[in-house]
């Protein structure tokens, strides 16, 4: 089999993942796009491992590790997304701007808003 096919597929898949990470608003969709990127890398690893005929199967073993890492990443990532959703009432990536550089006297618009009514009001706009 021509090596170009898996290589090109993996490149395109990776770029689709990049697009998803950059364009999606919901944090869980962003995580999905990250999964796509990881999968693209896995395909690359497998294809090159098979091409090289590596005796210790480093590419495929690394793919296994990568799958396990992806599982761990998705677990922790989802926990964080859920926590953020619980605290801010939103999982929209472009609304979480607490790191924005703004003047000190300006109120922190994306700061934590305690109380259920804050979360409820945010919910109507984001979800």
């Amino acid at each position: 089999m021509h090596l170009v096919y898996p290589a090109v597929l993996s490149s395109l898949l990776f770029c689709v993942g990049v697009y998803g990470v950059l364009a999606r608003r919901n944090a869980i969709l962003v995580l999905m796009s990250v999964e796509l990127m990881l999968a693209a890398v896995s395909l690359n690893l497998v294809a090159f491992d098979v091409w090289l005929g590596d005796e210790v199967h480093s590419g495929q073993v690394l793919t296994l590790f990568l799958i396990a890492l992806a599982a761990a990443e998705i677990g922790v990532g989802l926990a964080i997304v859920l926590l953020v959703h619980r605290e801010r009432g939103s999982s929209a990536v472009d609304r979480l701007r607490a790191l924005a550089d703004r003047d000190g006297n300006e109120p922190d618009r994306a700061g934590p808003e305690p109380g259920p009514e804050g979360a409820a009001s945010r919910e109507t706009t984001t979800t």
Binding site: V21, L22, A23, V93, D94, L96, R97, A98, L99, A100, D101, A110
Partner: peptide, 8 residues
């Protein structure tokens, strides 16, 4: 201005 806080 560039420091919007938007991660994307």
């Amino acid at each position: 201005r560039a420091g919007t806080g938007n991660v994307q």
